[in-house]
Write a protein that binds this DNA or RNA. Structure first.
Lengths: 115, 115
DNA sequence: CTTATATTTCTATAATTCTGGAAATAAGGA
DNA sequence: TCCTTATTTCCAGAATTATAGAAATATAAG
């Protein structure tokens, strides 16, 4: 009976709940909107290309990254909207009207608003 | 080569990357600091007590919930600090100096600051 | 058209996680 | 003490996910 939103959230959380994939995702987040070629990612993180490909497929399936071909390379980039959606989902139910309850979460959110 | 922080993040993400556990966690987040007895959770979410117990153990292992005994019942509650820590970790690497990149994420954070 | 580079797909094995039944533990009440 | 309620632990089978080698596909360059 889980909502479609919850199912999507679990997909994204599952995709990130893996040391290799979390590293890839964070690298792409840091790399910015231009993204990185799969080969560059494999070299930087020292992973086998087929393993990386499988991990990128999972991240893409969860909508956390997108790709485009550039010559022989395939460039991957983080999807910031999707990441924001996931954070929003996790944050969403935390307040429930009582500001005092989720003070630490609000503080974190405020810190993030720096950029 | 993953940092201890990353390992802890993966633990929390893994714990939440499960439909049943995500439901439990969100229910506890909504329930507030008083928490809920395991039996109440089982009844509200209609899950077997042993399955719930296993799920609560995983969430507790990830530090996302804590428990205390009250008579025959065991009361579980969400750990807001830990949740904030996880959000912080996910948000942390998103900016990297360029405000324009993570605009959607910053917008989400601002929305969360409502409470 | 042949070769080199970049990445993915296929496939099988290994490892992990999920689920639910049954028994065990813990606490309170008769 | 005995019984009931509340929750956990133990366990085994089922299901899912991870890993890496080998082959396949796609593109570019000579």
């Amino acid at each position: 009976m889980a909502s479609a939103k919850a199912v999507r959230a679990v997909e994204a959380l599952s995709a990130l709940a893996h040391e290799g994939r979390l590293s890839v995702f964070r690298l792409l987040v840091r790399a910015g909107p231009e993204g990185l070629a799969a080969g560059d990612i494999a070299r930087k993180l020292d992973v086998l290309p087929n393993t990386l490909s499988a991990n990128l497929t999972v991240l893409a399936g969860a909508g956390l990254v997108s790709s485009r071909r550039d010559g022989r390379s395939i460039i991957y980039k983080a999807d910031y909207e999707r990441m924001a959606g996931l954070l929003n989902f996790l944050i969403e139910d935390c307040c429930n009207g009582d500001a005092s309850i989720c003070a630490p979460v609000a503080a974190t959110a405020a810190r993030a608003a720096c950029c």
